[in-house]
Simulated scan of single mutants.
Amino acid sequence: MKRATIGAAALALTLTGCSTAGSDSTASGEASQEEFLAAHDLDGMDTAGIIDHLDRVDVAERSTDLIASVRPDELLLTDNNREVVLDLPENQTYVSIAPYVNQTHDCFYHSLTTCLGELGNENIHVTITDGATGEQLVDEQVTTFDNGFIGFWMPSDTTGTVEVSYQGHTGTTGFSTTDEGATCLTDLRLT
């Protein structure tokens, strides 16, 4: 399990792009991972389950004291006092996509608790293609979460394209699940 310092967590939250302004992590005590997860009603879930749960929470019901940031190989959870870093499933990366028609925001690491996209609870068609092999990794009709995003687990170290269709509009963007890749795609404009 990877452990980051509080200073790195603060820097990482700054890079998140979707995190709330003023989110500040200070070390005022070490709690076990289990205690931390229980305090945020996440106990009994593995990393993939936590990510899926937090991305699907209705916006009005989101926690105001938990920041959850998805990185290419880990999930960083922080609150006012503590942090927990959980490894993603081996050889898998979670990529969250927020297609838009009129407005978007800059984002690099998806924040499961603060990011908001334009098209919440909308039916879209998503095709994700591996650029090296041409294989379609995803070809599905899906409904975006209340936060305007839709997330997919994809193989690590893959690059390719994401295409979305919505009510006669289409758009395409690139993605990368390498260590330098973004987990938050907010540049997919539908025209």
Rank of each mutant, 00 (worst) to 15 (best):
E140G: 08
T129E: 14
E83R: 07
G134N: 12
D79Q: 02
N123T: 15
I150R: 08
L75Q: 00
N123Y: 07
D73T: 10
L116S: 13
R82H: 13
G131I: 14
V101D: 08
R71P: 00
F145R: 10
I97G: 02
I150N: 09
L88S: 01
E90R: 12
N81D: 13
N81R: 06
Y100W: 13
N80C: 03
Y100T: 03
E122I: 07
P99L: 02
D87S: 12
T93P: 07
R82V: 03
N91G: 08
L88I: 04
N81L: 04
R82Y: 01
E140N: 15
I150V: 13
N121F: 05
L119P: 04
A98R: 01
N80D: 12
R71V: 00
S69T: 06
V101W: 01
D106T: 11
S111T: 09
V85W: 01
L137D: 08
T133L: 11
V84G: 01
T127M: 13
Q141F: 11
N91F: 11
Q92P: 02
T114N: 11
S96A: 15
L86T: 01
R71D: 02
G120Q: 10
L137Q: 13
P72T: 02
L86V: 05
C107E: 06
D146M: 09
H110S: 07
T114H: 10
G134Q: 15
V138M: 12
Q103Y: 11
E118H: 06
N91Y: 06
N147Y: 05
C115S: 14
Q92K: 14
N123D: 15
P89E: 02
N147T: 14
L86M: 10
P89K: 02
V101S: 05
E83S: 07
F149E: 05
V95T: 08
H105M: 11
T143V: 15
D87V: 03
D130S: 10
L86Q: 04
L76D: 01
S96M: 09
C115H: 06
R71N: 04
L77G: 00
S69D: 04
E83A: 04
T143S: 15
L75A: 00
Y109L: 11
G134M: 14
